[in-house]
Design a protein around this nucleic acid. Sequence first.
DNA 1: CCTACCGATCGGTAGG
DNA 2: CCTACCGATCGGTAGG
Lengths: 199, 199
Amino acid sequence: MSPRRSVADARDTRSAILERAVDVASLQGLEGLTIGSLADDLEMSKAGVIGHFGSKEALQLAALDRAVAVFVERVWSRAAHADAGRARLQALCEAWIAYLAGDCFPGGCVLTAAASEFDGRPGAVRDAVAAQLERWRAALEAEAATAVATGELPTGTDPAQVAFELSALGTGANQAIQLQGDPRAPERALAAMRRVLAP
Amino acid sequence: MSPRRSVADARDTRSAILERAVDVASLQGLEGLTIGSLADDLEMSKAGVIGHFGSKEALQLAALDRAVAVFVERVWSRAAHADAGRARLQALCEAWIAYLAGDCFPGGCVLTAAASEFDGRPGAVRDAVAAQLERWRAALEAEAATAVATGELPTGTDPAQVAFELSALGTGANQAIQLQGDPRAPERALAAMRRVLAP
DNA sequence: CCTACCGATCGGTAGG
DNA sequence: CCTACCGATCGGTAGG
């Protein structure tokens, strides 16, 4: 038989490339990702790496998708059991901060880093980052709206304002953890989030 | 006489390079800054550009210094007239949000972008970014401590917590403005800041 | 401040 | 999945 790799092998290789790509992206950014250094890390040729994606931009989009999948699994899935509304917001915030504090990638949250990196670079990557963050923000807003409707949050509370504040606190926690290495950042962010969600 | 440029001319050239460098850095990041494209933009040779700084890293540090000087001028200086404590915190937040909303660089706050870009890249630039942000955080904390001491903020309020929350809201506003183009982000950030500073 | 150049690396392709 | 290669660009230097 020929030494040709099977479809399953190719899928494994693709996964291995993406796993490494996401780690590198968390440290160097999605733009700092290079095909050559990825190939060296994985002891492959550059053609072998890029062949799975077609272009650097497609690789960046795939790495972003992978990072989002991890985020959904570690944050959203772990909070989905809670009742819609205030309880789920609380659970989401706790899972989110736990994720940012140690459960994510070596250089922190890829989505947050990509938001800052691509906000001045038009293109498909920027559009994808914006769409994913908007999806997260909208999910927080929807839970906040439920909490207001059921009276778990004070009447007159603006759900979009709640989503904005929680988002900002998550982003702030990521920065304090990654740049300043502040060990108290997670508890500070959680304390502020609880105040935003106070009945 | 020789056509040799004067010291004053050289200083003007250096300023022109930095002005352009800061604008580019706000859009492409400090790492996305390249000597070649800077030279093209300014219709100079690469040697003419890099000669003023010595290395790309020195250029990045100089651009960062310039961005910090603009921040100090537009935010700190405009709030310094207010009484120390709660009034100055309010004035700082208002100047800060006004700055983020339109008064800064084409791609937003360079310091915030650099924080995210360099948190996974050890070196002199990362150290300088961390030091500048720590300086800003410490200034906010000091004003909050004054406000607590004078009774303008409730007894038992943790000044470091106040500084953390205000920082996060500023960072969140920058992201919402630059990535999502949310026109309500400035007012949302200010509303949240006022709540943090409520007596 | 310039021209001319250096080795290294970039993203990507041809052909197998 | 590989080797071998493409033109472009990277940061930086020599010499003037």
